[in-house]
Write a protein that binds this DNA or RNA. Sequence first.
DNA 1: GGAATTCGATACACACTGTAGCGTAATGGC
DNA 2: GCCATTACGCTACAGTGTGTATCGAATTCC
Lengths: 179, 179
Amino acid sequence: MLDAAYAILVGVGLAGFSIEAVATRSGVARTTIYRWWPSKGSLAIESFLEGFRPQLTYADSGSSADDFRTLLQSLARALGGPAGQVAASVVAQAQSDDETRRAFRDAFSEPLRRSTAALLRAGVDSGELRSDLDVPRVIDAAVGALYFRLLTGQSLDRAWAAHLADTLLRGCLAPSVRR
Amino acid sequence: MLDAAYAILVGVGLAGFSIEAVATRSGVARTTIYRWWPSKGSLAIESFLEGFRPQLTYADSGSSADDFRTLLQSLARALGGPAGQVAASVVAQAQSDDETRRAFRDAFSEPLRRSTAALLRAGVDSGELRSDLDVPRVIDAAVGALYFRLLTGQSLDRAWAAHLADTLLRGCLAPSVRR
DNA sequence: GGAATTCGATACACACTGTAGCGTAATGGC
DNA sequence: GCCATTACGCTACAGTGTGTATCGAATTCC
């Protein structure tokens, strides 16, 4: 059923995503789906997590800047593909369903935020990044830019992510490392 | 009818937003609404534009950095209020309706992008901002961060916007002006 | 004052939701 | 091997919203 839900979200998009459609496609009775998922949102988010989780690269090269760039690139690569369509659908669903919003935050958004924060803080500690770096804002900007491109249907690839990372990092590097 | 649509989106949110509900609330027949708007999305976006347009501040203080900060603050202020709820609903609608997506981009997203780009380019020309500034990415980051906070239901106010602007500007200022 | 337009009201076919009830097949413990 | 539990398919149902068609009444324009 998760496969069917994923396939529908990737193919037809949120417009054609209904319990009915998932049931038909997966060859399962509608009642069976209701038995397992309380709402459309929870089904969507679970199918997203199923298909997305293993695609991120948390490098540890010794340079926080490089690791940051690598992470953003892997994010862009993942969200630029089919999973991006699913992610956008989940975010859209979350606008009319607090439960979905909460689930998405807890299962995806916050963990990602925490990992990124740890990565940047390591850079601050090592002296590579400026000591007064406003980590939450940098993450808002980075993740936000990805959201923005994703939800406005613009392309999302490694090259774009690399440029974004470089642009952001210019304000993050410690004075002694700046170009 | 636009007032009714706006009020519903602000109050109940996207969940309770239906042609039916707008008709009932505005005391109008459902058929009349269908006569004027081809889709739910076009109704939502028009009610958004009606209630939002006049709220942005395009300052011209002589400093691009200050103007950028001011613009971001006014955006945050506007989107942090009731209109933000409506904007989020429109973006969500746009995920299942290409027409809505296109309309939102043409009527809101792109003009805002263009104005911001002009503002930043003026800073580049005046020498306040670095000559190799990647303007599109800075805008992606700034606008994206706003989107992100908006769509994940996080607060959005002037103080946050000011910190965001400062964080971004650190990577934008020309070497001679840097702190 | 007559024509054109716009509206309200009703009706209809359709799709999806969410719940309930019932019979059936598989599973797992003893 | 038997029996209880569990999960499933199927059907039915009431409710809500969609989108279209039709028609008479009200309003506006000239």
